[in-house]
């Protein structure tokens, strides 16, 4: 187990390092024009540009620049936004609650629907209920997020509010620490927006995986031992069937924690996704770089967590 953990950890660190390297090359070496000018922004005065050049060491040889960059990263220093002169990391951290609420909440919602639906469907494979669920899942998968979001906005916010039932707010974010109920009220529609596609995809994955597991020899053995159907399903079939689901959760959660652009925009959630969009619009290079690094960080961490969880569940992974 320890060996496995160390190996995964090292692998995660290596991945992170490669990403920081790629980001360095992209932002410092491969961008056209003067990097100092890029980092200082187009409205910077000549003095400011010179200051940025000195601070980032852009007049130094490449390896010095790289070492400075890594040194800063290791101290969680992502630099300064030139739009509002705020620390990039502080800006991102301020935006995280909305993004985390959206990511964790929507994944939780779609898992809570998709896993039972997938199991139900697999157990009745070929029957009418299974066909219905499969069609619904396919439909859900094929709705683009912006269509779902716009529809939800129009029907559940606009029409409902017009009809005198302002159940859902126009948008915006209320931290859970300030008012949990309001937080929930503000999050439900954004969650639903992401969960439609997620539920569709995960129902199909869960169904397929469960079907495959139910055909495994060890499930037949469980039945041959005389175990009841519930025990066969939940103790023997379900845990292995969840492996592909978990792997996908790792990827999706990592991606969502890096920020969602469309959903945050529709529901006016000022998360990391909208921060990235604003940064691109204003050409705020330090912030763009920061959001890219944070997104990569979450993808690596989420996958690491899934790998560890898998090792806890499966002795073949843990003990090799």
């Amino acid at each position: 187990m320890l060996r496995f953990l160390l190996r995964r950890l090292l692998f995660g660190l290596l991945t992170l390092w490669l990403i920081t390297l790629a980001v360095f090359i992209l932002f410092f070496l491969a961008t056209p024009g003067d990097p100092a000018l890029n980092f200082a922004g187009e409205f910077a005065t000549a003095d400011q540009v010179a200051m940025v050049r000195a601070r980032l060491g852009l007049d130094q040889p490449v390896y010095v620049q790289y070492l400075r960059y890594m040194w800063a990263l290791l101290h969680f220093d992502l630099g300064m936004s030139f739009v509002n002169q705020e620390e990039v990391l502080a800006t991102i951290v301020r935006r995280m609650p909305a993004t985390i609420s959206l990511a964790l909440g929507s994944v939780a919602v779609w898992l809570m629907i998709a896993i039972p639906a997938g199991i139900f469907s697999a157990r009745r494979s070929g029957q009418a209920a299974d066909r219905l669920i499969t069609i619904a899942a396919l439909a859900g998968m094929s709705f683009p997020t912006f269509v779902v979001g716009t529809l939800l906005f129009y029907v559940l916010f606009f029409q409902l509010t017009n009809a005198g039932f302002p159940l859902f707010p126009l948008g915006g974010f209320v931290p859970i620490t300030r008012d949990p109920l309001e937080w929930l009220r503000h999050m439900i529609l954004p969650w639903a927006t992401l969960a439609v596609v997620g539920t569709g995809t995960y129902t199909r994955i869960a169904r397929g995986s469960m079907l495959e597991t139910l055909n495994q020899d060890y499930v037949r053995t469980a039945r041959a031992k005389g175990l009841g159907e519930q025990r066969v399903m939940y103790k023997h079939a379900l845990p292995p069937a969840m492996t592909p689901v978990m792997t996908l959760v790792g990827l999706d959660l990592g991606g969502l924690l890096g920020g969602t652009i469309i959903t945050e925009r529709i529901w006016g959630l000022n998360g990391v996704g909208s921060l990235a969009v604003q940064a691109v619009e204003s050409g705020d290079l330090p912030v763009i770089m920061g959001t890219v690094l944070i997104a990569a960080f979450f993808v690596v961490v989420a996958n690491l967590c899934v790998d560890i969880l898998q090792a806890v569940r499966d002795p073949r992974v843990r003990l090799g």
Binding site: Q216, D217, K225, G226, D314
Partner: peptide, 27 residues
Amino acid sequence: SESTLRRLRGNRMAMIFQDPLTAMHPY
């Protein structure tokens, strides 16, 4: 009935399979 069968299986009659690796639960 399924409940009658469950009382028989593993109790009054048992089965061993061709490939014991896949026939046992890996977890």
